[in-house]
Simulated assay, not measured.
Amino acid sequence: MKGKVADLGINKKIVPARVREARVSRGYSLADLSELLGVTSQAISQYELGTSTPSMAVLMKMVDTLKFPLNFFLKPKENINHNYVNSAVYFRSMKSTPKKLKDAYKYRIQWADEIHHYLKKYINFPEIDIPQFDAVNEIDFTFIEDVALNLREYWGVTKVPIDNVVELLQDKGFIICRLVFGNKKVDAFSQHYNNVPYIILGSEKSAARSRFDLAHELGHLIFHSHIDEESIVKKEILDRIEDEADYFAGAFLLPSDSFSQEVMSTSLEHFVFLKRKWKVSISAMIKRCEKLSLLTDNQIRYLNAQMTKKQYWRNEPLDDAIPFELPYLFKQAFELLIENNIVTPDEILNELSYKKEEIDSLCFLPKSLLERKQRAQKLTLINDN
């Protein structure tokens, strides 16, 4: 049985979809991986189709090259619910994001879903609580304003600043993760997957800008679940849904009926004061004032000129003072399992079959949480009697 997984003395076989998942999630083309493994692109394609199986030497090289545990390639994809139609993946800054990079990051939502699926065997997560809004033929800004205000009312945050957007959405059934993207091509992305709303945020932005990204992705999940992957790449559709999500983010974070009453000056110092209260960037507040016609065109130009003069477009006052909103649901779930001796860190890692560092990153875990715990050997005296 040369070249078969049975050489390892186990009955499981390589799951072809996992080979493709590992390759694409690392950003490799068939040609890229072919060069790294020393086999043909055709051979890798056959592994991914399941028409042939890699030799043990190739499999071990695949494990080392793609940085996945061996168990990952043997783990069936069991938690796919075919009763649900998954939405497209919405990428912030999508126009400048290479397709290879988008395809790689899309799998992070599937990994988050597998982790969620695993934890739900033991943990009760908040139920999804998103109201249904009437369908309209064309979404305009008036409709978006109404939805933002109605959603705030439904969630009990009618006119006040939202203290913690991550906490609010997690309480309503959203699964939120943070990643260090390590590039400027991706800020955040989201998807309805297996009927669960997932949002993946970057960790490179200020807390205020990250809150806006989160509200932007919320807008996509509310308004654009009907748009498929083929349509979302069309420029006119992409431009439209990005404008709608941006407008929603402003309307949701800065409600028209209460924020408008607080804009009383065109000085940047006044907007710094507002930023401390609303936890929204000055640039986003200026844009919101423009959309609501709270200031004249000349006043908007003056504020933008002042932003440029003070070099505030990238680094604003209070960027370091407003704390990041950290996802905590997965962390709490893992802590509950470990502290109550339901499962061990080793059992978690073996079941999930991802690298520990991958889980730590996606779930925003402290490095020590899933570390192996060394058990002290208990010694006893020999009884001479």
Score class of each variant (00 low, 15 high):
residue 202 G to R: 06
residue 263 V to R: 03
residue 66 L to N: 05
residue 5 V to Q: 04
residue 201 L to D: 01
residue 308 T to P: 00
residue 254 L to R: 07
residue 321 A to I: 12
residue 288 R to K: 12
residue 185 K to W: 09
residue 89 V to E: 03
residue 377 Q to T: 15
residue 165 V to N: 07
residue 27 G to C: 02
residue 183 N to Y: 02
residue 335 E to G: 04
residue 312 Y to P: 05
residue 347 E to D: 11
residue 261 Q to Y: 04
residue 101 L to H: 00
residue 168 L to R: 08
residue 21 E to W: 11
residue 176 I to S: 03
residue 94 M to H: 13
residue 206 S to M: 02
residue 51 T to V: 15
residue 279 K to D: 03
residue 352 L to R: 05
residue 47 Y to A: 03
residue 225 S to F: 02
residue 196 V to W: 06
residue 244 E to Y: 09
residue 331 K to R: 15
residue 161 P to A: 08
residue 155 W to T: 04
residue 118 Y to M: 07
residue 53 T to L: 10
residue 378 K to L: 10
residue 15 V to I: 15
residue 197 P to N: 01
residue 213 D to V: 00
residue 377 Q to R: 12
residue 371 E to R: 13
residue 65 T to F: 00
residue 379 L to C: 08
residue 233 V to G: 00
residue 280 V to F: 10
residue 327 P to H: 02
residue 139 I to C: 07
residue 61 K to A: 14
residue 381 L to D: 09
residue 36 L to E: 12
residue 342 I to M: 11
residue 60 M to S: 12
residue 273 F to M: 11
residue 227 I to D: 01
residue 108 R to T: 14
residue 189 F to E: 09
residue 115 I to P: 01
residue 152 R to S: 01
residue 217 E to S: 14
residue 335 E to D: 10
residue 340 N to H: 15
residue 280 V to D: 09
residue 57 A to H: 10
residue 313 W to N: 09
residue 152 R to A: 05
residue 194 N to F: 11
residue 91 F to T: 05
residue 152 R to N: 01
residue 268 L to M: 07
residue 30 L to P: 04
residue 347 E to T: 09
residue 213 D to H: 13
residue 260 S to P: 00
residue 241 I to Q: 06
residue 58 V to M: 02
residue 232 I to Y: 06
residue 212 F to S: 10
residue 135 A to K: 13
residue 301 R to K: 13
residue 106 K to M: 15
residue 252 F to Y: 07
residue 378 K to A: 06
residue 214 L to K: 03
residue 216 H to D: 02
residue 385 N to K: 13
residue 373 K to T: 10
residue 322 I to N: 01
residue 337 L to G: 11
residue 135 A to L: 14
residue 300 I to H: 00
